[in-house]
Each structure stands twice: as C-alpha cells, then as structure tokens.
C-alpha cells in the first residue's frame, strides 16, 4: 500500500500541494451536479456489490445521514428495492472524549429490522483518520451482529491512522494534514459542494 501512494506520505509535514498531475487547485472540488453524479455512481457500485440483495444504509450524523438518504433514493430508483436508512450517533464511542470538549449527542435510530444479520453500509461524508469509522463499528456491534459491514464515503482524503478502508469512494482527494475538506449539503448548509481549504 505504501509505495502506491507516495505523495500522501510526503505531504505529512504540511508541505505545499503535491505534484501537478495529482494536485487540485484550492477551492471547490465538487459542485452540486458533480455530487449528484457521484452519488449515482456510488449507488450503482453498491448494487453491483450487493447483487440483488438489499442492505441497510446507516448514516453517521450529521451529513452522513443525508448522504445515506440520497443513496437510498437513488438505489430505489435504479433497483426498485427499498434500502432502509438508519442513523448512528458515535459520540459515546469516541476515543477522544477525555481530550476534547464534549459534543452534543446526535440522534440514533435504526430501521425496524435492526442490523442483525443484515448487510450494513456505513455512510459518512469524509474519511480521514478512520477513528470515526472505528467508533461506528463499535457502536454497531452493540446494536447487533450484521452479516457484513461496508463503508461508503463521499470523500477520502487519506491520512488514515487505523487499518480501515472504504468500499465505495465518491472522490479521492490528496491532501496535506493541515488542509481541511469541507462538505456542504443542501439539507444542512443550503448548497451542495465539496471544498478543499488549503493550509496557509
């Protein structure tokens, strides 16, 4: 894995943007229509992998939940099958509760069937260190024993701290550690866009 992505590791020290071939100009990475197309593509990939069976989409608040609803809508359109959506707040499972000021707890609601023996697809906006996903896996385990857990993210920005990878990725974005990836969704922020804010 390491030789495949040398540029990711070399940017660890918040150095300037990586080589031009892979670099993104600072600013907007995805606009509204791009996000719609990306979600469509991810939905198709999910259908390909689940081969006719349905899955439970579990969003991680806040934006992961809205993405899960969008995916579920597209999946229904493409396949005619219902993909139930749940939301899973992971605050109580974070490993940094002692260090960071607490956040307000989010909503947790799982579909009626629960997650027992289901194929569960965790949905989040940005995949970064992997700690959120680790917490989500722990939280999920307390709700039941899914047959399988997959991960769908709109943006993978690298810099994993845990052995976690996504099954469905909307867009891979090489970033420096100090950069910030901001996902805005119409349901929360009034506009659909993904922006990369470069460290000064």
């Amino acid at each position: 894995m390491a030789p495949a992505r040398p540029e990711t590791t070399s940017t660890d020290a918040a150095s300037p943007a990586p080589p031009a071939a892979d670099a993104r100009t600072p600013g907007r990475l995805l606009a509204g229509p791009d996000i719609a197309r990306t979600v469509d593509r991810m939905a198709h990939q999910i259908l390909e992998r689940t081969t006719g069976r349905t899955a439970v989409l579990v969003g991680i608040p806040t934006r992961g939940v809205h993405l899960a609803h969008r995916l579920s809508g597209r999946l229904r359109t493409f396949s005619g099958q219902a993909f139930p959506v749940g939301e899973l707040d992971i605050t109580l499972y974070r490993d940094d509760l002692r260090r960071r000021p607490p956040r307000s707890l989010g909503q947790t609601t799982l579909p009626d069937g629960g997650v027992e023996d289901a194929t569960v697809i965790l949905v989040d906006d940005v995949l970064y260190s992997g700690r959120t996903v680790r917490a989500a896996l722990d939280a999920l385990r307390d709700h039941g024993r899914p047959a399988q857990v997959q991960l769908a993210v709109l943006v993978d920005r690298g810099h994993r701290r845990l052995p976690i990878r996504a099954d469905y990725v909307g867009k891979n974005v090489p970033t420096a550690l100090a950069d910030d990836v901001v996902v805005r969704l119409a349901e929360v922020d009034g506009v659909d866009e993904v922006e990369l804010v470069r460290a000064p």
Binding site: D89, L92, Y93, L97, L105, Q107, T108, D142, H143, G144
Partner: peptide, 21 residues
C-alpha cells in the same frame, strides 16, 4: 434533558443496554 433523551435513544431496544463511554 436533551442529552438524557439522546441516551435513551442510544440504548433503546438493545440487547446490551451499555455504552463504553
């Protein structure tokens, strides 16, 4: 009060009503 409501949700209907927090 809101936090209590969220905690109720978090453990509702679970086989093991325990959080690692």
């Amino acid at each position: 009060l809101d936090t209590a409501e969220r905690l109720a949700q978090a453990i509702a209907g679970r086989e093991v009503p325990k959080l690692p927090t």
